[in-house]
Design a binder for these strands. Structure first.
Lengths: 158, 158
DNA sequence: TTGCTAATGATTATCACTTTCATATTAATC
DNA sequence: GATTAATATGAAAGTGATAATCATTAGCAA
């Protein structure tokens, strides 16, 4: 049973990775940019890592096997990921920009543990709807939003 | 009628200012810090200005009449305001820390116009309640939260 | 293969804080 | 009011993360 679930997850993950690689590749082509070894490597690492990575996180991970890839390239490539739509920049107020994976049309918010830094994603349709109502009542047209709940996670409360 | 409303608002504002000055002064005393001319001036400017000021905003405003007050002092004083409870640091993701006024026990969220930078405050009890529920369902104990809606304000939509 | 364009990586610059340090101010005590 | 010990100030230097520069290298279309 467990194994089956893992298999499904794995397959779904693999499919998603392929989809994102295609999105990025199409983006590169459309923009007249070039496909390079570095971009491929960085994309691979990004897709198979934690959902919330800073430039430094990714750079350090890469450096072990790819000491020739520079910090600036990681920085520029992550920006491209965001521009292509497969990643999104997020700020948790700790002075580090992080990049998270973006699934097609998906949006979610975050629970951030102020002790251990754990980040949990959640989604609540009712809250989203209320947000739209609030915005409308002030004449605003929402483009994006940001909801973060900071506190102690179950583990740290013990 | 209009005049009457303004009078009420003005009086309430004046009372609030006095209250905050007292809170800050008490804080200074309790901590064994010193009351200085600079801190008084900065507090005056802060209390009678926009609700969302960056260090630089305040520093530039001050400089016109108080060219002798340094950036570092403004920076340190705003930190003290936050520590004393009369102000709160906020980040809108534009790389500038801003300080907003804090009314006793009050919390609100923000609508931010991505074109003109206008910031509107709002409050929605239902959203807050739903946030608590979400947090609880993940075993989190919320300490603070942050909700920002980014979009176009009524004025910019025209 | 050539030639044009974009990418890379090392380095430098920038920006918004943040800290340092010599000097000046408080405020408590004589 | 003078003394004095502690804190505050302001100019300047330091930080850390991001962003830009530039000489060199690498895609890729013809």
């Amino acid at each position: 049973m467990k194994k089956c679930n893992m298999k499904i997850t794995f397959n779904r993950g693999a499919r998603m990775k392929r989809a994102k690689k295609k999105i990025f590749h199409d983006f590169i082509t459309r923009k007249g940019l070039k496909s390079t070894r570095q971009r491929d490597v960085i994309l691979d690492y990004f897709l198979s890592s934690d959902r919330h990575m800073s430039i430094e996180d990714l750079y350090l991970k890469l450096r072990a096997k790819h000491p020739n890839i520079g910090y600036a390239t990681v920085y520029r490539t992550l920006k491209l990921f965001a521009e292509s739509g497969i990643a999104r920049e997020i700020q948790f107020g700790d002075g580090q920009t992080r990049y998270e994976h973006v699934a097609e049309g998906e949006h979610h918010d975050h629970l951030v543990c102020t002790r251990c830094g754990t980040i949990v994603e959640f989604k609540n349709e009712t809250i989203e709807k209320l947000q739209s109502e609030v915005a409308a009542s002030h004449g605003f047209l929402i483009e994006t939003h940001k909801l973060e709940l900071y506190g102690m996670c179950a583990k740290c409360r013990k």
